[in-house]
Amino acid sequence: PECADQRVLAKHLYDSYLKSFPTTKAKARAILTGRTTDKSPVVIYDMNSLIRGEDQIKCNYLTPYGEQNEEVAIRIFHRCQSRSVESVREITEFAKNIPGFVNLDLNDQVTLLKYGVHEIIFTMLASLMNKDGVLIADGQGFMTREFLKSLRKPFGEFMESKFEFAVRFNALELDDSDLAIFIAVIILCGDRPGLVNVKPIEDIQDTLLQALELQLKMNHPDSSQLFAKLLQKMTDLRQVVTEHVQYLQLIRKTEVDMDLHPLLQEIYKDLY
């Protein structure tokens, strides 16, 4: 009966995940490997292809700040921000559907999201990446890693640590139903700074961890130690987020006119 409960929980989280996140890993992998009847993504690999791509890609977050006149590196950086804000909204909706989450102290819910969202953003970004580039605008475009690397300092280095993490993480070959539980586990971390009431958070996470372990055993019977390997990735994720915050601090120092979205300001303030 306990296993049955864990399967119900896994199914519930997967359903919530599909409702909350429009671009699934399944869809992204189909586009990246050409296994889809949809139009191939527009490949952006230099300044000319970027300009062409901007005409071809229909997307409401492509030019959110009326920024066509902005320098390319800053334009791309702004788009990353817009996408991150959208991701925070999606993750919040997903979190609310984790059984027990909305019954937690409201300030603890805020703390869990504050510390969890970027780990989740980089986990899900890996689904859109391969070693050569990243899907953008819901799979309408593919921006190459080399192009991103060629952006002027300090923007050129901004995505490298995410690609390095993605390549290692994608080697685990998780699918969307695995990721749904993993993401819930990340949110319900009882060791986030400033939590008021840790016990109920750890209780929910214990249940989620049991569901994750069973899910991985059933979905990847030949992949030994996958559960342990996945838990280790949580440490890597914290490192990716710490580096990300350091980059942002550098960018805010060197780019005096750089504005940060108010939601992201809230999240980054006193983070690490």
């Binding site: 119900v8 909204r89 919040t92 609310k96 559907n97 409201l106 805020v110 999201l113 939601l263 999240i267």
Partner: peptide, 20 residues
């Protein structure tokens, strides 16, 4: 609470949680 007012708002938005 003031420090995280957008996160608070997102959490208290309409969409209702689903109970198992």
């Amino acid at each position: 609470k003031e420090k995280h007012k957008i996160l608070h708002r997102l959490l208290q938005d309409s969409s209702s949680p689903v109970d198992l």
